[in-house]
């Protein structure tokens, strides 16, 4: 019964996207669309296929994902380090409170112009901006998770005379792992957004620049094809991370906050 109902629901869910596609295609065919802003779905698919065949789409994807991933790793590692330090040493956390709360609300993209001055238009600017955006979720989630670690575990580690590093590696890290996964999930979304933004404003490579180039070349089919491709990447990354989260934490992962 539930299988039947969910099949009907699935069919209903497909109505809007498929209907929209058909209407768009029909409207474009009937009106003989020749626009600089819109394109028929078939033209978009054609442009996407051409970009995929000549390899430019995948080269741009590699550039974008490479920079996003590099920034993500740097940001999450820095955020984790600071978060664990702040969680373990309360006075440090309290002393840095004003500084952190003053820097945190700065929108990550606002530091792009600063980085343009410091490191020019390029890869380093992109990675640094992504890293800046990814520090905060890791810092905040790991800080509160460290405070929530079962105190008896800490006592055990004291009784065993574990060194501080061993304590972090053997007790703290395993028990805050689920929060780290949530932080990474949040950060991946940010990383992709920020990477594409930087490519549009300050680092003329990758998918962000590919979209701008297509828009300025008045090639709406290619522009929309890249947009859909980016959406597909975002969707695939999210699905991948959900899978990862489910493996790490079980079914509770599905309730985790989404970006």
């Amino acid at each position: 019964m539930s299988g039947l109902a969910s099949r009907a629901d699935r069919a209903r869910g497909l109505c809007l996207p498929l209907g929209g596609l058909l209407v768009a295609e029909a409207a474009a065919r009937i009106s003989g669309l020749d626009s600089t802003t819109l394109a028929a779905p078939s033209a978009i698919a054609g442009a996407g296929a051409r970009a995929a065949l000549d390899g430019s789409l995948f080269a741009a994807t590699a550039q974008t994902l490479g920079a996003a991933f590099a920034g993500l790793v740097i940001g999450v590692v820095l955020g984790l380090a600071a978060g664990i330090a702040f969680g373990l040493v309360r006075p440090l956390d309290r002393l840095m409170e004003v500084t952190v709360e003053l820097i945190r609300p700065v929108p990550p993209v606002a530091i792009i112009p600063i980085l343009i001055i410091v490191s020019g238009l390029g890869f380093r600017t992109e990675v640094t901006t992504v890293a800046f955006a990814c520090i905060w979720p890791a810092l905040i989630l790991s800080r509160s998770a460290v405070r929530g670690v079962e105190p008896r575990l800490i006592e055990v580690s004291r009784a065993l005379r574990l060194s501080p590093l061993a304590r972090i590696g053997k007790i703290i890290m395993p028990s805050i792992l689920p929060n780290i996964v949530v932080a990474v999930r949040l950060s991946v979304g940010f990383a992709l957004i920020v990477a594409i933004t930087v490519e549009m404003t300050a680092n003329p490579v990758g998918l962000g620049y590919a979209m701008i180039e297509a828009q300025q070349a008045l090639d709406p089919a290619l522009m929309l094809a890249v947009l859909l491709w980016i959406g597909g990447i975002g969707w695939a990354l999210n699905a991948l991370l959900l899978l990862l989260a489910a493996r790490v934490m079980g079914a509770a992962a599905r309730q985790a906050p989404s970006p």
Partner: peptide, 22 residues
């Protein structure tokens, strides 16, 4: 929910900054 949610789930992961050129 049955009609709208799948479409919204498709749109949601779209990085907002990527919609700027469009």
């Amino acid at each position: 929910s049955a009609y709208l949610k799948p479409t919204l789930e498709l749109l949601r992961p779209l990085p907002a900054s990527a919609t700027i050129p469009v």
